[in-house]
Amino acid sequence: MLQLDNITFDYPDGTTALRNINLTLDAGKKIAIVGPNGSGKSTLMRQLNGILQPTSGTLSYKGQAVDYSRKGLQALRQSVGLVFQSAEDQLFATTVEEDIAFGPLNLGLDRADVKARIATVADALGIEALLARPIHALSGGQKMRVAIAGVLAMHPQLIVADEPLASLDMAIQQQVLNLFDALVQDGRTVIIVTHDLDQAYAWADEVIVLADGEVQQQGAPEAVFADQAILDLCGWEKPWVLAVSQQMGLTPAAKSRADLLARL
């Protein structure tokens, strides 16, 4: 659905954050982007809905090169929703409800629709009780959930989230991942940036490894994380479920902890 051809990006101060990126992001996929700190994950994410424009190379949506005019960006951003790394920096309304309403209202929906969408996402993320609260009175994890809700309420085809799970407790992480699964089942694409390799391994259909601004690997998690050269390059340990599976000679390797336990 989204295609990146030979994208390179330099920050104004001369830092080259992305080098010759070639990627295809298909519909109906759960994609995890992993990579060391400073490898360019957030920068890559910002390319995907035109917040940053590549220094060279092209981004295409549904086979069409993205048009960086105001109108073209508007269209792209309707299809690609971004949840940023810092929740604090993306909430600007005074109350939770108002913030979630922001995107849908900008889409020109009528009040009944907006109301229905707020109710649906609030329920899905377990923040119904917070709707009337002022943003500044929320905890970090609550803010992140509101940020996710604000993007989901716009019903984007592609959801790109920068470390959305980092500030959430285990139960809520699972709830959010289940929510993402439902969206993917619906034919949409969810891309998350994460540092949790175990989670990336268990959840994703596809893993993209970024290091030093370059794509090192793109593929099924079982294949990517079995590649010792990649793990060494990034200084990572193999996801434990995969390591145990390999040690025990399980083929195919167990996908999740539950899967592994069932097969022991």
Partner: peptide, 23 residues
């Protein structure tokens, strides 16, 4: 922070002003 707020405003299709929503 101003810059970041502005970016996310644009990412959610923010126009020239805050849409009215009070329930």
């Amino acid at each position: 922070r101003m810059d970041a707020l502005n970016t996310s405003w644009e990412a959610r299709l923010g126009g020239t002003s805050m849409p009215i929503w009070h329930t």
